[in-house]
Design a protein around this nucleic acid. Structure first.
Lengths: 121, 121
DNA sequence: TCAATAACTAACTAAAAAGTAGGTTATTAC
DNA sequence: GTAATAACCTACTTTTTAGTTAGTTATTGA
């Protein structure tokens, strides 16, 4: 067993999952990795179905775990931009793999995602 | 939006997560990938904390999604062995990446997993 | 000056995921 | 013949995760 930050993990896979698990985190990270859109409202517009509660909660956890960070563009009004930290960027191959594996899987099921792609703004 | 098997996905990342998401699936898959132990009781012994309910539930879902399969070694008594299908094997780079990224992360936090490794039977 | 937008937060509820406890059939090992 | 092991299943409860609704401060644009 591995104890880290008051949590117990059984193996390194478990450790990684502790940081990127859950319904939204990898989507947020992939979004930052791929689209380089980064304001709070960009996420809202591009992650269909996410609630604001989930969005700000997940952003906070990702910040806490130092996978993302934000620049405060202005205080009044409050304007920010999120970006991947070095640690967040180090997961780059993962984002790429998961995405292209998903595309292949869709192909196997006769859905041509590339052709049908009108999802993201 | 992508509709597949009565579920709605927003992008290929989401599709992949639909198959491997959750608390146990990647651990089970990694286990098959890495340790080549494959009976029901091997999983029980090597995934600390998993309940039997979770184990059989997750194994079933992974079978349904064709990431793993099993050989029936004998019917009476019931003896089986699980293994990764071709599809399950195609996620190999993912298992490797997640594991080694976890090890690096532990290193950054001054935990030498390799040195301390006495986790798996 | 009033609506829209940005970037949030908080209280509450609902749904999904996971855990607990117990049971089944069958075999081998002592 | 009794305990241990293997490979499960079922009903039920708890915990975790996620969704809903509403509210805040501040600015810009019509």
């Amino acid at each position: 067993m591995i104890t880290l930050n008051k949590k117990i993990y059984t193996c390194p896979v478990d450790v990684t999952l502790g940081l990127i698990g859950g319904k939204w985190k990898l989507l947020i990270l992939f979004h930052l990795h791929y689209f380089a859109k980064k304001s709070y409202s960009d996420f809202k517009a591009n992650l269909p179905g996410i609630s604001e509660k989930m969005l700000s909660q997940q952003l906070k956890e990702l910040e806490r775990d130092k996978l993302i960070a934000k620049n405060q563009l202005s205080i009044k009004p409050n304007r920010v931009e999120y970006f991947l930290t070095e640690r967040g960027q180090s997961l780059g191959p993962l984002y790429e793999f998961i995405s292209s594996w998903g595309i292949s899987y869709l192909m196997e099921n006769n859905i041509d995602y590339i052709k049908d792609q009108h999802l993201y703004k």
